[in-house]
């Protein structure tokens, strides 16, 4: 058990942080929802009803989709694009999907390679893109969920103004949907872009997200 915790401490720490934050968001969101209801003479709703409501759903989904988009794009773009000096990048000249030998697939796989990496057919094609596929599917799934939960909240506001509710198809064409989406995307793109550049010149001793403290600024693809 102790060994398991030690060997998985990074994932476990983030799981704990995620659970704490998502519960805290629900508590704060529920209080805010009921404050708004009280201001309009509406009925307060229970915590569990809030947790399964579209109001909470859209607040969670709009952030999830942007995070998964960030990682999907990061995985995809770092195949083909490089940043000289960044530990997040491959070395200049290695752009592309690289050779089978470099990727240790097919005949170049070792006895310790995953079984699907040794395959020569469709299974290998799937496995060598599996990270991108799963992250991409998570992005699309959460973005669709944002649309389906967002339209409910959007329509509740429309009813307050005696306007006809819209379908989910109409909602994804509204400025409201895109404002919600893009405000999350821009922050993710800024965070990843600044990380790629700042890690060229700045260091964090002991972090694999940084180059070793003494590594030169133009050393690319080196992790500390």
């Amino acid at each position: 058990m102790r060994r398991f915790v030690r060997e998985n401490s990074l994932a476990l720490a983030f799981l704990a942080l995620f659970l704490a934050a998502v519960v805290a968001q629900a508590i704060a969101g529920h209080a805010e929802f009921n404050n708004d209801q009280a201001d309009h003479g509406g009925s307060p709703i229970s915590f569990w009803r809030y947790v399964v409501s579209s109001s909470y759903g859209v607040a969670v989904m709009e952030n999830w989709q942007s995070e998964y988009l960030q990682f999907t794009l990061f995985i995809l773009l770092t195949v083909f694009l490089v940043q000289r000096g960044s530990p997040e990048s491959k070395e200049v000249g290695k752009e592309g999907t690289e050779s089978d030998a470099a990727q240790r697939v097919g005949p170049h796989a070792t006895e310790h390679s995953p079984r699907w990496a040794r395959d020569r057919g469709l299974r290998r094609r799937i496995y060598e893109n599996s990270l991108l596929m799963v992250m991409g599917a998570a992005w699309v799934g959460t973005w669709v969920a944002q649309a389906f939960t967002g339209v409910v909240e959007y329509n509740a506001e429309r009813l307050d103004h005696l306007s006809e509710p819209v379908s989910v198809g109409q909602y994804v064409g509204t400025a409201a949907f895109w404002e919600r989406t893009l405000q999350n995307w821009q922050s993710e793109f800024l965070a990843v872009g600044s990380m790629a550049i700042l890690a060229v010149y700045l260091r964090q001793r002991g972090s694999p997200e940084s180059k070793p403290v003494g590594a030169p600024h133009d050393a690319t693809g080196v992790e500390g």
């Binding site: 009925s43 409501s53 909240e153 509740a156 009813l159 307050d160």
Partner: peptide, 19 residues
């Protein structure tokens, strides 16, 4: 839609409701 509703009335005269 959560705590708001619109009810269509046959023959016209629709209604908006709050919970």
């Amino acid at each position: 839609f959560t705590t708001s509703a619109i009810v269509t009335v046959r023959g016209g005269g629709d209604a908006f409701l709050d919970e």
